[in-house]
């Protein structure tokens, strides 16, 4: 039997997860505005942390719980890929310099309780046990043992690799126009489809009322002198900064959060702030190599919550804000389950 045709608009994080969930049952046509597969969208730059507890400080409880649900979906998604992708569940360590203890206490107060997830006070000894290279540098912290992270660059590559072995077709460097046809069919540019899944992120700004970009800047550093076993967050009076260790001695250090649609290069100020904060966590970063300094736009609605909708046979999934990796598997599954899964 001929498979129904589905167009996926956008091959960032959300588009990839939709494609992974749909490719067996549908013939996919994947449209991406960027000219290639592996560096598009906010998802390519992110630290890819799976931190529902830490993020519960700034989001509603139901969003944090959705993050817990999504964490359980990641291992199955990654297991289906042809090459291995680092997926780690070793927790998050949150530390603060002595003058920022007030921020650490405030962070702790705002952690929302969730079943099966808990926060532990981390003493100097605990910090030294968890991250030996931070021994003596920090005397107080918080450990969130259930949190994790993955290697998003490897995920981007492996998901493309898998989809290339299927009957999915790719159209890179293509902008799209949707035309609703009679009998519920829909056209993307000139081709007809049974369904369209719109995962364009900020690219769908013209179609989605209230969608805005929130600028984020990150650094990717190669630092062989630094060894961390899990993402470390540093409390800072103005910028919560994380250092996420990736394979091959690479670290993602991020991220600024600026209400702006400007996706231009990272500023000197942001670079200084991110790198000096990393240096105060571990002086080994001084001799690290700057692999990349990036800026991107997180798609967000005014309440910073994801939104999915179905209009005719167009399913739209957008507004994952700073919670792409945290939420995407659960949000995409929910959005597709009624009509396509």
């Amino acid at each position: 039997m001929k498979k129904p045709k589905v167009a996926i608009l956008g091959f960032g994080l959300v588009g990839r997860i939709a494609a992974l969930m749909l490719h067996e049952r549908y013939q996919l046509h994947i449209f991406e505005a960027a000219p290639n597969a592996n560096d598009n969208g906010a998802g390519a730059l992110a630290a890819a942390m799976l931190a529902p507890m830490a993020e519960s400080v700034i989001c509603d409880t139901d969003i944090a719980e959705l993050g817990v649900e999504a964490m359980a979906l990641w291992p199955k998604l990654l297991a289906a890929l042809p090459s291995s992708v680092m997926y780690q569940q070793s927790g998050t360590l949150i530390v603060a310099h002595p003058q920022d203890m007030g921020d650490l206490r405030s962070f702790e107060q705002r952690l929302k309780p969730m079943a099966g997830h808990y926060a532990q006070q981390a003493s100097s000894q605990d910090i030294a046990r968890l991250e030996p290279e931070l021994a003596g540098r920090f005397h107080q912290g918080i450990y969130l043992p259930s949190e994790g992270q993955l290697d998003n660059q490897a995920f981007y590559k492996a998901s493309f690799e898998l989809l290339q072995t299927t009957d999915s077709q790719f159209y890179f460097g293509q902008s799209v126009e949707l035309h609703q046809e009679a009998q519920g069919r829909i056209k993307v540019n000139d081709a007809e489809f049974d369904w369209v899944v719109d995962c364009r992120g900020i690219g769908a700004k013209q179609q989605l009322h209230g969608l805005r970009g929130v600028r984020g800047e990150v650094a990717r550093i190669y630092a062989p002198e630094v060894s961390l076993h899990r993402p470390v967050r540093l409390m800072h009076p103005r910028y919560p900064i994380y250092i996420a260790p990736k394979p091959n001695n690479e670290f993602v250090i991020g991220a600024t959060e600026i209400e702006s649609q400007d996706s231009g290069s990272i500023t000197v100020r942001s670079t200084l702030e991110l790198l000096s904060a990393a240096y105060t966590v571990h002086s080994g970063f001084a001799e690290g190599r700057v692999m990349a300094l990036n800026a991107g736009l997180r798609p967000a609605f005014s309440d910073n919550r994801p939104k999915t909708s179905v209009h005719g046979n167009v399913i739209s999934i957008n507004g994952l804000y700073r919670h792409g990796y945290l939420l995407a598997p659960a949000v995409v599954k929910q959005a597709l389950s009624k009509e396509l899964l």
Partner: peptide, 11 residues
């Protein structure tokens, strides 16, 4: 500085 009129207009 990054919020030029057009860049920051949503906020």
């Amino acid at each position: 500085r990054q919020n030029s009129v057009s860049a920051g207009d949503d906020f």
